[in-house]
Simulated assay, not measured.
Amino acid sequence: MNKVVTVKNIKIGEGIPKIAIPISDSDYAGIKKSVNLIMNSPCDLIEWRGDFYNDVTDPEVRIKPLTLFRNQLWNLPVLFTIRTDVEGGMMEIDTKDYTDLLLAVIDSGLIDIVDVELSRGEKTVRTIVQAAHDAGVKVMGSRHNFKNTPDKDVIIRSLVKMQELGCDLVKYAVMPQSERDVLTLLDTTLTMKEEYSDTPVVTMSMGHLGVVSRICGQVFGSAITFGTAGKASAPGQLPANGLSIFLKSLS
C-alpha cells in the first residue's frame, strides 16, 4: 500500500484518486473566472500552471493569483507548476532561472505543493526538495513525454529516482501511440503500487487513447487525476464533473 501524503485535509494516496483542476489562464481576469468555476466543481486540489501566465517571473505579478487562491480557495491545496518547453510546457527557461523561480514561490508561503521536473537534473531536484521541506511544502517530482510511451523499466527508473531524491509525490505522463501503450502505463502504475510504494504515484496516458487511465487510478494505483473546469492543460483531460462520477462509480 502506497504511503499517504496529507496536504491540508486532503489525504493523497488514500481512497479514490484526488481530482486536481489545472488553472492555465494567461492573465488575472482569466484566473478569476477559473476560480469561480472551480468553486462550483468537484475538486480536491488546484494546479496553477504558471508557465501559461504572463510575466510569472515578476514577483509583483504572480502574487495576485497566489493571494486569490488563498483567499477564495483557502481549503484547497495549491500545486505550483512551471511546465517547461523541454517537457511539453509553455515556458522556455534555463535551469538557474527555473530553480530561482520555484524557490521564490516556495518562499512566498502561498503554495502547498511544488512540481519539479526530473529533466532539470538531480542537483536541481535536491535543491527544490530541501527548500520546500524547510518551508513545509510538499514536492511532486515529474516527467512528461508528449511523443510516445517509454518502456516500463524506463518509466519505473524515473519514478524511483524521484523517490530517491526525496520527492513526496512522483508523476509520469506519457503519450500513447497504441492501445498497448496504455496497458504499459497501467502495468507500470500497478508495479509501482506493489513494489515501490514509498510515495503516492501519479500517472496518466494522455490524449484520446489514454482517457481510461484518468479514471481507473484506484484500480491500478494512481493517486491524482487531472480534470477541467474550463480550459484543459493537457490532451485527454475530462471535465471534473463527469470525472467525479466515473471515479465514484469505480470505488
Score class of each variant (00 low, 15 high):
Met1Leu: 12
Val4His: 01
Val5Ser: 05
Lys8Tyr: 08
Asn9Ile: 00
Asn9Thr: 13
Ile10Trp: 05
Lys11Ser: 06
Ile12Ala: 01
Glu14His: 07
Gly15Ser: 10
Lys18Asn: 01
Pro22Tyr: 09
Pro22Lys: 11
Asp25Gln: 13
Ser26Asn: 15
Ser26Met: 06
Tyr28Val: 14
Ala29Trp: 04
Gly30Asn: 07
Gly30Lys: 08
Lys32Tyr: 02
Val35Ala: 10
Asn36Gln: 14
Leu37Trp: 05
Leu37Arg: 12
Ser41Cys: 07
Ser41Leu: 05
Ser41Val: 09
Asp44Pro: 05
Leu45Asp: 06
Ile46His: 10
Gly50Ala: 15
Gly50Lys: 06
Thr57Asn: 08
Arg62Gly: 07
Ile63Val: 15
Pro65Lys: 07
Pro65Trp: 07
Phe69Ala: 13
Phe69Ile: 01
Arg70Tyr: 00
Leu73Gln: 10
Trp74Tyr: 13
Trp74Asp: 14
Trp74Ser: 15
Phe80Thr: 05
Thr81Lys: 12
Thr84Gly: 02
Thr84Ile: 02
Glu87Ala: 12
Glu87Phe: 01
Gly89Tyr: 02
Met90Cys: 11
Thr95Asp: 12
Lys96Glu: 13
Asp97Ala: 14
Tyr98Arg: 07
Asp100Trp: 00
Leu101His: 09
Leu102Trp: 09
Leu103Arg: 09
Leu103Gly: 02
Ile106Thr: 06
Ser108Thr: 15
Leu110Pro: 00
Leu110Cys: 06
Ile111Leu: 14
Ile113His: 04
Ile113Glu: 11
Ile113Arg: 03
Val114Asp: 07
Lys123His: 11
Val125Trp: 00
Arg126Cys: 06
Val129Thr: 07
Gln130Asp: 14
His133Ser: 08
Ala135Lys: 15
Ala135Leu: 03
Val137Met: 10
Lys138Ala: 14
Gly141Val: 09
Arg143Gln: 03
Lys147Ile: 06
Asp151Ile: 03
Asp153Ala: 14
Val154Phe: 13
Ile155Trp: 08
Ile155Phe: 01
Ile156Arg: 08
Ser158Met: 11
Leu159Tyr: 12
Leu159Ser: 03
Lys161Tyr: 02
Glu164Gln: 15
Glu164Ile: 09
Gly166Leu: 09
Cys167Arg: 00
Val174Ile: 13
Pro176Glu: 00
Pro176Ile: 11
Ser178Phe: 09
Glu179Ser: 11
Glu179Lys: 14
Asp181Ile: 02
Leu183Asn: 00
Leu183Asp: 04
Thr188Glu: 07
Lys193Val: 00
Lys193Trp: 10
Tyr196Arg: 10
Thr199Asn: 08
Thr203Ile: 04
Met206Cys: 06
His208Phe: 05
Val212Met: 13
Ser213Cys: 03
Ile215Phe: 09
Cys216Tyr: 01
Gln218Tyr: 03
Phe220Arg: 05
Gly221Ser: 05
Ile224Lys: 08
Thr225Cys: 15
Phe226Lys: 06
Thr228Pro: 01
Pro235Met: 00
Gln237Cys: 08
Pro239Gln: 09
Pro239Phe: 04
Gly242His: 08
Ser244Arg: 13
Leu247Trp: 08
Lys248Ser: 12
Leu250Pro: 00
Ser251Ile: 06
